[in-house]
Amino acid sequence: MRSGMWRLVCGMVVFACALASVSCGRGTQTGEDEHVTTLGTVEVTAELVEIRGELIDRPMYDYAHVMKYKVLTVHRGGDVGDVIYVGHYNPLKPRNAVADARVPEVGGTVQSFRVGDVHRIALEFPIDECFMGGIINKYHEENVSPVYWAVWTNRARRP
């Protein structure tokens, strides 16, 4: 009896953990949360395909660095095209620690930017109307437009 009860409790714990893992996993997989689905006017899941130029490690100066993404899914905002260009604020900082007095409204779960990673991003545009600071845009000569401003950037899995 004792052993049966123990087995039942263990079974329930395992079931609960599995349930929690599936539930959390869905968020991790899709990158969905209450921020990314509500902030900005455009929301996409996209693969980071290029970081052109070096990310500057200069803690005394805030800046945004424009990166190139291949769009995998558009969740909000209509047809944005297959490729978009997104400016990330102070990209060497983890997204959950990047908000500051100059830009209080940015965040997300991405810890660092690596080519090949997939992100679910809430976006606003054009970047010039969203951010007053230095913008490093190595795509400038290609006349890419619009350049988006990343409001919320979560890690996601390829859909």
Partner: peptide
């Protein structure tokens, strides 16, 4: 300003 992709 940001001009020609170059800040500062």
């Amino acid at each position: 300003a940001n001009v020609g992709g170059e800040s500062w």
